[in-house]
Design a protein around this nucleic acid. Structure first.
Lengths: 133, 133
DNA sequence: GTACGATCTAGAGTGCACTCGAGGTCAAGG
DNA sequence: CCTTGACCTCGAGTGCACTCTAGATCGTAC
């Protein structure tokens, strides 16, 4: 088995968009918002050329977004990575803070689930009792 | 111990807002959006008078909102309740559907948490190894 | 050399869920 | 009475995160 991942492979914006599951508009907008850890290089003609690892970066951003991190937090994290090594403690703090926010969200959802399930259970039992289910 | 809840108690919009933890603007807007299960009665002077159980209704709406239900779903549920008894099966279906959405959200968040924790752990170990923590 | 699909920029538009403001009315205290 | 604070309606404004448009350019394939 050899390494099947070609780390020198680059992507056009269209390829990256379809691989990452976002629109090309979104990629350009993310760039304008400072969400990339380094400047996106261009061809002589001006087209964007994305490095292979951009895909992993976008996957991380997607996880952060999915879990409720606002764009400002992504920007902050990108800025830390862009600034280079030496700020790992800050990156860690940011990630841990989001981890705690995630824990809070999960607890909230579990509490909501309990209330809603209880309500549903009540309807279900009433329907069963009346032979309507 | 006697019943300490006065179910005949009514609320002004300001009272209800502070008890329910929303703004008076939001209560009026919810009403305009059809999120109440019955028309809100008014004083001769035109002020809204909320029944005691409106508080419980708002608590349920809050849980639905917190767990990502769009206003359209709240409106749909309110419409079913407004329509009176006979559609309990539909109410049940709506609640169960939201319950499933909630389960999906919780799973998504748990997956995100894993990715973010792993990333944080990597930073933490690197910092520890360099004696910076 | 030309067709055509992907890409470029700048900026406007969208959807959601509020949130606020203007201008006026109501009602309890003094 | 009169003041004052809570309330009324209607409509405009806000913040977020995209999403789309217009009009131009690039680059590969005939």
């Amino acid at each position: 088995m050899e390494d099947v991942i070609d780390t020198t492979r680059t992507f056009s914006i269209g390829e990256l968009a379809s691989l990452a599951g976002v629109s090309v508009h979104t990629l350009r907008w993310y760039e304008a918002e400072g969400l990339f850890p380094r400047d996106v290089p261009r061809t002589p003609g001006g087209r964007r050329v994305y490095a292979h690892d951009t895909l992993a970066w976008l996957a991380l951003l997607a996880r952060l977004r999915e879990s409720g991190a606002p764009i400002a937090v992504l920007r902050e994290y990108a800025a830390l990575v862009r600034a280079g090594s030496g700020n790992e403690a800050e990156r860690l703090a940011l990630l841990r803070a989001h981890e705690r926010s995630l824990d809070a969200q999960i607890e909230t959802l579990i509490a909501c689930r309990q209330v809603i399930s209880a309500k549903a259970d009540a309807y279900q039992e009433a329907l069963l009792a009346r032979g309507l289910l």
